[in-house]
């Protein structure tokens, strides 16, 4: 019983960490820049396909990470220049445009790889024995990597001037220009970072899920509502949202059914949108 609880606890942590990784790119783009990037899931999907290609080519799996970041970053650059900036980073207009973008990216990938499921092999097989319970090694590695990525980003965001400058630009764009921040360039780079992070998250989850052109849709829904519950633009909000939504999914899926877990997530999101539209930890 204790062992089961332990595994269950690990699963909750795993779900929360992975969801936080998946949300990260959206948190940057939507939480910091207020751009509702509905195509976020498609960037994850492209990252997953990058992993597939790298593995098929017989290259070491970790190479997929820079590859995905590069591909998604370049697409992000083009999208920022052609869609987001012309629409002045307006939430409503960019929502519509990225909706179209999501459609476009899905279809382009479908054009290249077909509709069928591709599977990416788990790069690190086997399992590890923890307190007498075996746990898949790849999941453990993922947890460690996700925790490291999130922690280092958190530290970087708090310490590096760039993190402070983004916070400054978002909190007070007028003053940011006044103190010499080139807000246009900073916004662009932030957007690209968000799409590249989505690509990296795609590489990480690729071995755990069927890779197909429509896979992004589930990710965007979960990511979106995790942010809604947690609150936009704060690290605490990101973690709170990912923990609540990810943990809830994990526990309810195991205890009742995935459908009720999903419905519970939607219900909580609706309640938050209604009564606390800025989430648990909103930007001040």
């Amino acid at each position: 019983m204790e062992a089961l609880l332990f595994t269950q606890g690990l699963n909750v942590v795993f779900e929360a960490l992975i969801l936080a990784m998946l949300v990260l790119g959206l948190a940057v783009v939507m939480g910091l820049l207020n751009v509702l990037n509905i195509a976020h899931g498609e960037f994850i999907m492209i990252g997953a396909y990058a992993a597939y290609i790298v593995q098929r080519a017989g290259l070491p799996y970790w190479l997929a990470i820079p590859a995905a970041a590069l591909v998604c970053g370049v697409i992000g650059l083009v999208v920022e220049r052609c869609l987001i900036r012309p629409l002045h980073y307006e939430p409503f207009e960019t929502l519509l445009a990225t909706w179209g973008l999501g459609l476009l990216l899905r279809k382009c990938v479908e054009l290249g790889f077909g509709r069928g499921y591709r599977s990416v092999e788990i790069p690190i097989g086997g399992s590890v024995s923890l307190f007498g319970e075996s746990y898949p090694a790849y999941r453990l590695v993922l947890m460690v990597v996700a925790a490291l990525v999130l922690a280092s980003l958190f530290v970087w965001y708090r310490r590096a001037p760039t993190g402070a400058r983004i916070r400054a630009m978002v909190g007070n764009p007028v003053l940011a220009e006044a103190v010499g921040i080139r807000t246009r360039e900073l916004a662009r780079n932030t957007f690209i970072t968000g799409t590249a992070l989505a690509g990296v998250a795609g590489v990480m989850v690729a071995p755990l899920t069927p890779v197909e052109p429509f896979m992004g849709l589930t990710f965007i829904v979960n990511s979106f509502f995790a942010l809604v519950v947690g609150g936009m633009g704060t690290v605490a909000g990101l973690f709170a949202g990912a923990t609540i939504i990810g943990g809830l999914q994990s526990v309810l899926s195991a205890a009742v059914s995935p459908t009720s877990a999903y419905l519970a997530m939607l219900l909580i999101s609706i309640l938050f949108l209604w009564q606390r539209p800025r989430g648990l930890f909103p930007r001040p």
Partner: peptide
């Protein structure tokens, strides 16, 4: 066969 790409582009152009 790839008409949907056309529709997506069409939509994006309309938004822009």
């Amino acid at each position: 066969p790839w008409w949907e790409i056309g529709i997506a582009l069409f939509f994006i152009v309309v938004v822009l």
